[in-house]
Design a protein around this nucleic acid. Structure first.
Lengths: 254, 254
DNA sequence: GTATTATTGTAACAAAATGAGACAATAATA
DNA sequence: TATTATTGTCTCATTTTGTTACAATAATAC
């Protein structure tokens, strides 16, 4: 595509103006808690994956659509956690630069340059199942450990921090581990998820006793890792992922 | 005002389209947990107090403005808890009826008949300090006990239930009691707030020991109620209301 | 005055949950 | 066969919570 053949902008008629969403997509690589960050072409702007809501589309569905496009995954564990609506968060010059560097034809009154209120969601996905795909506007989409994030544009840093705070609060109640780990995992892996999210070390024996005491884990065969020590058992959550999500929904809409 | 002299509609130029807020305003009358519900003129529509966001206004400020108008109170404890964005929640015929019964001139393409996404907040206020005022559109605004609500319009019932669910989750962490009680209160009053929110009875001695153990209460003089038994002490929260809110804000925005 | 009544504050003991350390079991390796 | 690192579990101490008991006390009845 050449500079003379500009790309067509998204039509304002198709989208709800002033409303966007941003998603904090968490994954666990076995050691670190990471999130997906994209970088826009030629701008050095790092940002959370986000998008807009179509006029005939449920808010939740818009977010699911965006996640599907970026990760290829359906049925992702998703939770809305805050809506960011301050005036100061809108910076039209940033959006202008992004579109310009992506060879879009620009109009001064284009709807994307308006003020936006953004509904933020976090998603929990199985790191290994995903091959993130950059979209049309972005150079790359990559995993970044939560304590090694690049400088993020606009208020995206605040959004990530709020997501982490809510994730922590939900750690026990929502069985967060289930959505960040493969179906079968060792007790050590589960503990590492907890430690990454809480940002502190936990006592091994207490953790094991407490988790087993909850009666939510099923024990399976041992995992022989080829290491010179006793092999750990594999565990899975008793309630399946999808059932658990259904329960949460029922709680919400009851 | 006569039928010939129709009222002027709010101008779409002043407000962000498709975006509204609703507020679940909790108060405690000493026995029951209540919320403020308004009834629109001549419609039998019961609804949560809500409003719209001005184009040059922070989302949070819009909600504070609405609360101030309805309760006369500044510096209310306020927490955003969910954004409702499903397609099915929008019912333009309801808004049409409300405006019609209030003698507004109607236009078919009026912005208020569009789809709305609503950001929901809950507020905690001291029941006794407030004299709720109906606005232009509503006959009345009254306290209703949470288990004796009238049928609410649109999805407002769901909004209330979600508010209660979040309030429960926040009960310990956010010192909810502080904002629902007068500055000085008895242990029994505090326990009643907890019981109303949780919807279950608590054991008196355990509750007292646990709350005193937290070291957040200050003991003051006794309250002589003229009853034939030992007079209870009055307590207050050690951290003042406003300081506590500041802490929460810092947590959020840090 | 004195006994009665209802409620409050706290102590005392039991039960449950958690902290901290010890130790046997066990895969691979030397 | 001994060694090594890690895992699963046990034990005992500590803390928290559940439960019961009981003394203190403000008003009232007598």
């Amino acid at each position: 595509m050449t500079r003379n053949n500009k790309k067509k902008l998204l039509d304002s008629k198709d989208y709800i103006p002033h409303l966007a969403y941003d998603s904090v997509i968490f994954g666990f690589n076995g050691t670190q808690l990471k999130i997906l960050i994209l970088e826009y072409h030629n701008t050095e702007f790092f940002a959370l994956p986000g998008g807009f809501v179509k006029r005939g589309e449920n808010l939740d569905d818009a977010v699911k659509r965006g996640l599907k496009e970026r990760t290829g995954l359906d049925h992702i564990y998703l939770e809305q956690f805050h809506t960011f609506g301050s005036l100061s968060r809108s910076q039209p010059e940033i959006m202008r630069k992004i579109l310009k560097e992506n060879d879009f034809e620009l109009k001064d009154d284009y709807w994307m340059f308006d003020r936006f209120i953004s509904v933020a969601y976090y998603a929990l996905i199985n790191y290994d199942e995903v091959e993130p795909k950059p979209d049309e506007l972005s150079d790359s989409i990559n995993w970044y450990a939560i304590d090694e994030l690049p400088p993020l544009m606009m208020d995206h840093r605040k959004i990530v921090e709020k997501a982490l705070q809510v994730l922590r609060d939900n750690l026990e109640r929502k069985l967060v581990g289930m959505n960040l780990l493969p179906p079968k995992f060792t007790m050590k892996q589960l503990q590492q998820v907890y430690e990454c999210i809480l940002g502190e070390k936990l006592r091994r024996t207490t953790f094991q006793r407490r988790l087993l005491g909850k009666n939510i884990l099923e024990r399976h065969e041992k995992l022989f890792q080829g290491k010179a020590h006793k092999a750990p058992y594999l565990y899975s959550f008793k309630v399946s992922n999808s059932e658990r999500q259904k329960e949460d929904k029922e709680l919400i809409h009851k």
